[in-house]
C-alpha cells in the first residue's frame, strides 16, 4: 500500500502534468498560427527547402556559424547540456512506462549524461552571474530557469543512480512542477526555435544565402 504514493507521482501526476503542458503548448502554437505571416515573394534565387534543411542542420555543425566556430567550447556546452536534458526527460517516460529498458548500465549512462548537463549548468549559471554582457540582459527567469534545471538534473541523477523510492518520488514531483513551469519560462524556447529555424531557412534559402559554397 505504501507504494500508492510513488505510483501516483510516477503515473497519474505525470499524465496530469503532461496534459497541462501539452495544452499550454498547443495554445502557444495556436496563438502563433493565428497571426499573419508575411511570406517572401521575390523570385527564388536558392531553394527554400534546402534552406530549411540547412537551417536545422547547422545545430549539429559548430563550424556553420562564426559564433560557434569562435566559441567552440560554448557549442560543446550546448551539446552536453541538451544531452543531459534529453536524458533527464527520457527518464520521466522510460522509468514509469518502459521499466524493462532501464537496466543498470542504461540508468548509469543516462545518469552520466545528466551529470554532464549539471556541470555545464553550473558553468552557465556562473557565467550569467559574472559576465557583464549577460548580466545586463538577464531576468529573474534566466537565473531561476537555470537553477531549476540544475535541481531537476540533480534529482534525476540521484534517482537514476540510487533507484531509491525517496529519490524517485522527489524526481517525479520535481518533474511535474517543472512541466507546469516550463511553458511560462524561457525553457519553452524550443517551441519557438522550431518556427525560427523554419523562418530562417525559408528566407535565407530562398535568397540563396546559406546553401552556397564558402570562399
Amino acid at each position: 500500500m505504501e507504494d500508492r504514493f510513488l505510483e501516483f507521482v510516477k503515473f497519474d501526476l505525470q499524465i496530469i502534468a503532461l496534459s497541462v503542458f501539452a495544452l499550454l503548448y498547443a495554445l502557444k502554437v495556436y496563438q502563433l498560427m493565428k497571426l499573419p505571416w508575411p511570406r517572401e515573394m521575390g523570385p527564388r534565387r536558392g531553394s527554400e527547402e534546402l534552406g530549411v534543411v540547412y537551417s536545422f542542420a547547422w545545430l549539429f555543425f559548430p563550424w556553420s556559424m562564426s559564433s560557434t566556430t569562435q566559441h567552440l567550447g560554448r557549442w560543446v556546452e550546448f551539446a552536453l547540456y541538451h544531452l543531459g536534458a534529453g536524458a533527464a526527460i527520457l527518464g520521466t517516460f522510460t522509468i514509469p512506462f518502459w521499466p524493462a529498458i532501464m537496466t543498470r548500465p542504461v540508468s548509469l549512462t543516462m545518469a552520466a549524461l545528466v551529470i554532464g548537463g549539471f556541470i555545464v549548468g553550473a558553468i552557465k549559471l556562473a557565467r550569467r552571474i559574472i559576465a557583464p554582457e549577460l548580466r545586463v540582459v538577464s531576468t529573474p527567469d534566466d537565473y531561476f530557469s537555470l537553477a531549476a534545471v540544475e535541481v531537476f538534473f540533480f534529482f534525476t541523477a540521484m534517482a537514476l543512480i540510487t533507484e531509491a523510492r525517496g529519490w524517485m518520488i522527489a524526481y517525479f514531483l520535481i518533474t511535474a512542477a517543472f512541466l507546469f513551469y516550463v511553458p511560462f519560462s524561457k525553457i519553452s524556447h524550443y517551441v519557438y526555435w522550431f518556427f525560427a529555424r523554419v523562418f530562417f531557412g525559408l528566407r535565407y534559402g530562398r535568397r540563396g544565402i546559406i546553401a552556397g559554397k564558402r570562399a
Binding site: 566559441h71 560554448r74 550569467r128 554582457e133 540582459v137 534566466d142 525560427a196
Partner: peptide, 11 residues
C-alpha cells in the same frame, strides 16, 4: 522566449 540570452550574438 525564443532568445535565451545566451550571449553568442554579442561579439
Amino acid at each position: 522566449n525564443l532568445c535565451v540570452h545566451c550571449g553568442l550574438c554579442v561579439d
